[in-house]
Every structure is written in C-alpha cells, then in structure tokens.
Computed example of a mutant assay.
Amino acid sequence: MKTRRTLVLGGGLAATTLALAACSPTRALNALLPSSTHVLTPDLPYGPDPRQRFDLYQPTTPQPGAGYPVVLFLYGGSWNRGARADYRFVGEALASRGVLALVADYRLYPQVRYPEFLHDCARALAYALRESSRLDGDPQRVFVIGHSAGGYNAAMLALDARWLAAEGASPRQLAGWVGLAGPYDFVPIVNPDVRPVFHHPDVPPDSQPIHHAEQPAIRTFLGAATNDSLVDPQRNTGQLAQRLRRGGTSVTLRWYDRVNHGTLAGAFARPLRWLAPVLDDVDAFVKAA
C-alpha cells in the first residue's frame, strides 16, 4: 500500500525530511546504515525471473549452535511498486539482532495480477525453508514478515496452505509470521491502484486473509499504527487478531501511537526507532520461538 505522508524530524536528526511509505525512496535511512552489523550478499535468485531475487543479510554476531533465526521480509507498495534495495534498513536492523534476513522482490502489476505474486512469495519462502541450513540459519526458526501489501502476502502464505503446498512446503514448517499494517479484509476495493491487481469487480472471495483465519494457525504477531489513514487498523489488524484468537491461534497484538502507515516500517531504522519499539517487539517474538 502507498502513502504520500511526509514526516519532518527535528532535534538530533537535523530536521531531516523523509517521505516514508511502503513504496517511497528510503535513501536517507539506508545511507546511515552501519557496515559492522552484517554481511550483505545482494541479488541472489530464488527463481528465473529478474524480479525473483533477494538480498541476504547475515549477522556478524556469533552463530548460535542451531543457526541464526531466519526471516523473509516482504515489502509493500500496492502490489504495483517496490524494490528490495529500498529496504536495506530492515535487513540491517534484523541482522543487527542476530537474525538472518532475506529481503525479496516479487513480480508486480502489470507484469502479474493476483495470485501470481503469491506464487513468487511462496517460492522465496520455500527457498528460505530449504536452504536455511546452508545459509547458517536454523531451519526450525524460519519466519515470514511483511509490511502493508507485503503483510497481506505474508498472511496468505501463513494462513492459506495452498501457496506453500505448490512449492512442496507447508505453513507448519514456519516458527511464526509477522504482519505490519497489512490489508487483510479490503473488499470492496476503493484504491484505484489495487483494483486491477485483484480483477475488480470480480475479486475472488478467497483472496482475503480474513477468510482463512478460522482454523488454528501458526504463531502470529500483528502490529499496526493506531492512526493509520491508509489501511484501517481496526478492520484489518484488529479484526484479524480477534478471528485468529477465536480459532485458537496464539496472537501477539501491538498498537503503536506515534507512527503512521509508512513510518511503522521506518521505525526499524536506527534514526526512527524512538517512534515505536517495532524492532524490539518483532525481535522478541522471533527469539521466543
């Protein structure tokens, strides 16, 4: 999903102005990254298409006996835009906490529509499950994390087994999933950028994560900004948490007051962590597995 909101930061950040959203440039945040926390291996393939690539962030902290926890991160952008290079600050943040991070691209509209981008995300996640040991990761602690449209993608992989099944894998192989400001119940579609992605007006009913939340699912972390004007936090995050819990799923729910839709993801970055403890909360969820 996208937003054009701009956050003006003052004080020690020298009034840096950043247009932070799931699809906007984040060069200022990425320019401030330390190099000592991670080893970056860019442009690794998980499929044949040029968009089926990921960047790998390996921690420089000592490797645990069973390997590092592993996270596949999926960004947002209304399924229309986005690039893994814009989210270096997320990969670095996770690696700095001793988490092996894969930040992946996937095909976007108009190259593909629903559900093809889910096949890409499932393929990337199956790669993480299959190759985690080779990458010094722990195959018993693999997670998928997504923000905005990427949160939708993560939800579908975690809650609807058919996507991973097509890749010879299962959500039950995951140690958990994280959705940040994801759209989980957005029919009727009002965003004109999103309508063609989901074949509006013939949107498949089973395309909505909320319809896959009645049965017990894997451990879940849901986070959202209380004042998200782009993706209704109560309808989407609040409702999904309620329905998952009703179905017997363990859900950690966090609301953040000082961020909006875009800066919720931006809070992974060192200069913006004062806005919300998103990284701390996600790290605690991953380490508790």
Rank of each mutant, 00 (worst) to 15 (best):
P34Q: 09
L74R: 05
R258D: 14
A289G: 15
H212L: 01
L135S: 00
N80V: 14
T226E: 13
V286P: 00
V99Y: 05
D86H: 13
P209M: 04
G91C: 06
Q208C: 00
V251G: 06
T37Q: 14
D136Q: 12
K287S: 15
R273L: 00
L40P: 07
G179Q: 00
V190G: 08
V8Y: 10
I210D: 04
L272Q: 10
A169D: 14
H211C: 00
V178E: 03
L244V: 03
L222A: 03
A155W: 00
A181S: 15
Y75V: 01
A241S: 10
P171C: 11
R141W: 06
P34A: 13
L279V: 12
P277R: 12
G176C: 05
Q52R: 10
L102W: 08
R246C: 01
Q234Y: 02
H212P: 02
D228L: 09
H147F: 06
Y256C: 08
T26K: 06
A66L: 02
D228N: 11
P205I: 01
A289E: 02
T220P: 00
R219Y: 01
F73C: 10
L7T: 14
L264H: 06
H261R: 06
R246W: 03
T16Q: 14
N236G: 02
P201R: 10
P50Q: 11
F186E: 01
S133E: 13
S250H: 14
D206K: 07
F89R: 11
A217G: 14
L157Q: 08
A166P: 08
P192R: 11
A175Y: 07
R162C: 10
V144F: 07
W255N: 07
Q215Y: 05
A93G: 12
S36A: 14
I218Y: 04
L157P: 05
P139T: 02
A122E: 08
D281A: 04
A158M: 01
A83Q: 13
L125I: 13
L40T: 00
V8M: 05
G238N: 10
A95E: 11
F198L: 12
L108G: 08
L18V: 15
P271M: 09
S36M: 02
A225Q: 04
A31K: 13
L20Q: 11
A269D: 08
H212R: 01
V112F: 07
F285R: 03
A101S: 15
D193I: 00
Q239P: 02
Y87G: 05
R246P: 00
S96Y: 06
A128Q: 03
L279N: 08
L102A: 15
F143I: 04
P110Q: 12
P62S: 14
L164T: 12
L72Q: 15
P233A: 06
T226A: 11
S132I: 08
I145H: 07
L222Y: 03
S148C: 10
L18C: 12
T16C: 01
A225L: 05
W79N: 05
Y114V: 01
L164P: 07
A83R: 14
I210S: 05
A158Y: 01
R134V: 08
